[in-house]
Design a protein around this nucleic acid. Structure first.
Lengths: 193, 193
DNA sequence: TCGAATCTGGACCGATCAGTCCGGAATGAG
DNA sequence: CTCATTCCGGACTGATCGGTCCAGATTCGA
């Protein structure tokens, strides 16, 4: 039974993710989701099953479309200090966002849902681990090419860097000035010396 | 019309705060709040007005009873590196908590409510600013007595430290091992050199 | 012991939630 | 054009939400 009328499922997913991201899971009512996905109620349930399954799907999309793009510099061969700096620049821009401070989708889910929902917690943790590993690899590579000091193990530095990223995303929620975020990044990056 | 039967309002506040803290605002239904405060529905509304006002009251209590206690070392005359280290030890213990990872009450509120509720955002920001100022003062004092390096302005270091605290509280949500948190703290404290 | 003040449990309200279901409109294949 | 398939709007359900209200139980001062 092939689709003949087809609609853009990816675009619907994107809309849903944006809504979850800006409003949170609880505040994203079904009506608003229908608006955001541009779907009828029937098609919505046909396509995504239910609200929670949709959340998990948007988490996957976030991982694939945002996180992967965000850390792309860290994947370059011979990545080091410069690439980490570049990623932090993206993090700041990403956290503030063009349409109000949305923070980080995964962080938001973690805080709102993790205590109650093991599946969401696992999904969020997976994304975070992925990000941490990317930092660790870049640190190791940077220590090898001399752009990063060798006083700390890559894992420890990676954990610290991802923690700083988390903090920035929370900080974004109360709308700090860019100077405040720049202070945070500058001091944090001193640990790479 | 004086109270003759009196009940412990402070204890009710404490119970409500614990519930909000562990479950979040949305998930803390009225029924659960009545359990937690050990109040009847009528007395609940008589005492606290409504659910949201109660949240603001618990935020104040958190500020007075937890944050103030947490940063007490920073208030000691001549505070410096040692006191900051002490506070970070408390932060780790506080975030993990005895009854599951509750993170930081203010952070949780910030993420869940700040986008929708200006009053909550202001209250949370006030608590956070308070904490940041305590760090800044301790850094300034530590730079004066030589326990902390002078390469960064106290405000910048303070912003960085409070950001690290935020990150740790988010990290706690996905139940990291203590070694991971220790890595984060150790690396972060190197910025005090 | 009596009466006033305090407190409680639960019935009740309107709103909103996620989710189900179906009659019929829209569409494309043949 | 025909007709099966796809899709939509909206009525509907049952649950739960925060919040109101009051009759009556409980308690205390006098």
């Amino acid at each position: 039974m092939p689709r003949t009328r087809g609609f853009d499922e990816q675009q619907a997913l994107e809309g849903a993710m944006q809504l979850f991201w800006h409003q949170g899971y609880g505040a994203a009512s079904l009506d608003r989701l229908l608006d955001a996905t541009d779907l009828s109620k029937s098609s919505f349930y046909e396509t995504f099953g239910n609200k929670r399954d949709l959340l998990l799907a948007t988490l996957e999309r976030y991982q694939a479309n945002f996180i992967e793009l965000l850390v792309e510099p860290l994947r370059r061969p011979g990545a080091g200090r410069a690439e980490i700096i570049e990623v932090f620049g993206r993090v700041v821009a990403h956290a503030l966002g063009p349409r109000g401070p949305r923070g980080c989708f995964v962080n938001n889910c973690l805080v709102e849902m993790a205590p109650h929902d093991a599946a969401v917690r696992d999904a969020a943790r997976a994304v975070r681990d992925h990000l941490e590993d990317a930092f660790v690899a870049a640190v190791a590579s940077g220590q090898k090419n001399g752009s990063i000091g060798s006083r700390e193990k890559p894992r420890a530095l990676g954990r610290f860097l991802i923690n700083t990223v988390s903090g920035i995303n929370v900080a974004a929620k109360w709308r700090p000035g860019k100077p405040a975020l720049d202070d945070i990044v500058r001091v944090a990056l001193r640990t790479l010396d």
